[in-house]
Amino acid sequence: MDSVLSALHEVPGVTATMVFDGSGRLALHKGHAMYDRALCEHVCGVLVKAIDAVQLEQEEWDAITAQFADGKILLHNLGSAHALAVVTDAALSPTFSTVAMRVAVSKLKKGIEKGTLTGITPVSQPGVMPLAQPAARPSSGPEAAAFLTRCVKELARYVGPISKLYVKEGVGRVCAGAPFTMAVAERLIEDLAQQIDLGDRGALRAALVKGA
């Protein structure tokens, strides 16, 4: 399957290609010398967070394009908890890249479905978050849902409206993909407390423990 990424590199302007899973684990990558594995792994971690954030507002996505001053990042949803990232410089030809990308995405999807992609982690592996779904699963029961709403409200006192995202990510961390239940409420409180200043943590814990 390395040949799929190699074909993409024949398009003028393509400088790096990466296939990664929902936990940011790099499954395949190819790139110019400066884009080594360590750098690509770091970038995949950031891109997974960006995809999670996108899915808070638009759960269903096929492609994300980020235009920069000196190039682009093209992200394609491969399904089965994987995404393709293509990094380009300003010389990229949109016509060539659209066709090449379609071909690559189709081949990679088939490869993932058949399990023939070297280095691809099975979707069912614990800890791997599906990219096609939000980072956190829905809560289980009205009590849990009410508690999460309170978490968003209380945390917003310290971080503002972004608290919704923090809570969603926190639930993803403590539940590892399972629905949120009150059994893990204390762990979530502690996780959220770590997101704010040391001096504010006690007040947040106290406010949330009341309802846990």
């Binding site: 950031v46 996108v54 638009q58 096929d62 920069f68 990042i73």
Partner: peptide
Amino acid sequence: LFTQAGESLGLGEPRWVSVEG
């Protein structure tokens, strides 16, 4: 997050991000 990714990859400042479904 895209600013961070762009800085790491040497792509400069982000201009726009589109999401297509």
